[in-house]
Nucleic acid binder design. Structure first.
Length: 516
DNA sequence: ATAGGGTTAG
């Protein structure tokens, strides 16, 4: 079924269309009819149209107009545009094709939020030209960059290993008509902390803090940064510094610390800290901001459970209601996760039924946790049943749901079943559907090298092509492995095409492969 | 999208 050896882009499209037709989804020019039939969600219709389009932005623009340009002033709803961009998130090149197609329309003026999505996508592809093109177009159309724009770009710089550029961007933002205020400063510190550069954030805080009058949020960001790199003692220092400077810690501050102790494996300290929070809020003066809230209890249940103290976790869970604090879905999720990990799936399922009985609506994460637990226990049928139930309850499976199921199928040697799931997710049976991400491809490609049939190499090759087409950069190891596999099984043509397709994508290829 | 709690596995 996978014996296609045309040029990769086309090969991929053929492959993709075959998959879709095999699960009853219309492809190509049939999309529109499909959209006008049972499925009326314009977001899905447009997303499909974009996915199956040959790829010329002008043609696509024309094809889109009946679906998008239906307001009086011929502008698509910004909300719909944003939703489509989000739906196509895991296929960044296609998402940007969509954006380009819209720009072909003479009267289209993107909303700031749509520009932000497009910028994020281009930056994730490290397409610097596209980023600067979008920025200058934005200026030309008088769509001012917002705080969010700068947050996105700063985050991309930090993720690309260029934190200094994030700082410089912050220092330049007022020149682009965006106020350089405390909120923006806090965002910068958060971006640095979340990319584990807490020390840099601290130094910046010392250097520039005077200019922005740090608030509770500033200190919380820094404390959380230290906690995330397992240095709760430093976070405690931040807490003290905060009090010294006359700021009152909030419950968020205490929760950051509480979680920090668990992250650093200091279970005993976490427990002591929690007791202190309870004691002080009981006997302290009124309005004391350290009374444990639902987040504190969730952290306790999760932390104690992961440390193997299931009984204690259940006890804390059981006592919270009496303390006037009702569990949230997240609290149940924490409990379900730790019971899956340290106890049995059966008991986790009981908790699921219990929460439903009390009127809670499990979310996607809840189902994923239990499905993972069931897969791990080898109860495939149970997992499939939960997938059914999840759909029935109107909770669309996420990429993670599919990744769990696919990984499990592959580990059980049922690779074809894994591939079938991949097709199913793209088609999105009923409801939204979601596109595979890097993990999906990596799991499946790896599985091909476990079975190692000749045709598996070809499948791996096609998966790699598809992955690259969708803007992902495979690891060098994966790349070499697939190429070697193709060469050894006599698929020189596809190997060559993969090399060509990759270098077309702008030289983001590992070096020794590019020299050819 | 200015801060805190649930999905990952070697």
């Amino acid at each position: 079924m996978l014996s296609v050896s045309a040029r990769p882009p086309r090969a991929f499209r053929i492959l993709f269309q075959r998959w879709c037709s095999s699960v009853g989804l219309y492809s190509g020019s049939d999309c529109r009819q499909q959209g006008e039939g049972g499925d009326a969600d314009p977001c899905s219709v447009v997303a499909r149209l974009v996915l199956f389009h040959p790829g010329d932005p002008r043609d696509l623009c024309e094809a889109l107009s009946p679906h998008l340009f239906f307001t009086a002033d011929h502008h698509p709803y910004a909300d719909l545009v944003d939703r489509v961009l989000k739906r196509l998130w895991n296929d960044a090149p296609r998402a940007l094709l969509f954006f380009h197609a819209l720009l072909c329309h003479p009267s289209y003026r993107p909303a700031a939020s749509s520009f932000d999505y497009a910028l994020d996508l281009a930056a994730r592809l490290r397409d610097h030209h596209a980023v600067s093109r979008f920025l200058s177009l934005r200026e030309k159309l008088h769509v001012m960059p917002t705080h969010r724009t700068f947050a996105i770009l700063m985050e991309r710089h930090a993720a690309a290993g260029k934190p200094d550029r994030a700082v410089r961007l912050f220092l330049s933002m007022h020149r682009h008509g965006c106020p350089q205020d405390l909120a923006a400063f806090n965002t910068l510190l958060d971006v640095l902390c979340k990319s584990r550069r807490v020390d840099k954030a601290s130094r910046l805080f010392r250097a520039l803090g005077g200019r922005f009058r740090p608030d509770v949020v500033t200190y919380n960001i820094l404390a959380d940064g230290w906690c995330k790199i397992k240095r709760a003692p430093r976070a405690l220092e931040i807490l003290n510094e905060m009090v010294t400077s006359g700021l009152e810690p909030t419950i968020a501050t205490y929760n950051i610390l509480l979680n920090g102790f668990f992250l650093g494996g200091q279970v005993k300290q976490a427990w002591e800290f929690f007791l202190q929070m309870k004691r002080r809020s009981k006997y302290g003066e009124e309005g004391c901001g350290c009374r444990p809230d639902v987040v504190s209890y969730t952290i306790m249940v999760h932390g104690l459970g992961l440390a193997g103290q299931i009984t204690k976790a259940r006890k804390v869970f059981g006592e919270m209601t009496g303390q006037g604090c009702l569990p949230s879905v997240a609290t149940y999720n924490a409990l379900i996760q730790v019971i899956c990990k340290k106890d049995t799936v059966g008991n986790a399922l009981s908790v699921l039924e219990e929460m439903v009985g009390r009127g809670y609506t499990p979310n996607c994460i809840t189902y994923n946790l239990v499905i993972r637990g069931l897969c791990h226990a080898g109860a495939v049928d149970g997992a499939a049943g939960l997938l059914e139930r999840m759909r029935r309850e109107g909770c669309d499976p996420s990429v993670q749901t599919y990744n769990i199921l696919i990984r499990h199928r592959c580990e059980a040697g049922e690779i074809d079943e894994g591939l079938r799931l991949l097709r199913g997710m793209a088609a999105g049976e009923e409801g939204g559907g979601c596109l595979p991400n890097v993990d999906t491809y990596n799991v499946l490609i790896r599985a091909m090298f476990v079975r190692k049939r000749a045709e598996d190499m070809l499948t791996a090759g096609h998966l790699l092509v598809e992955m690259v087409e969708r803007g992902y950069v495979p690891r060098r190891f994966t790349f070499n492995r697939v190429l070697n596999g193709l060469l050894l099984t006599g698929h020189q043509a596809l190997a060559r095409e993969i090399l060509r397709a990759q270098s077309d994508r702008g030289g983001r290829l590992p070096r020794e492969i590019r020299l050819r």
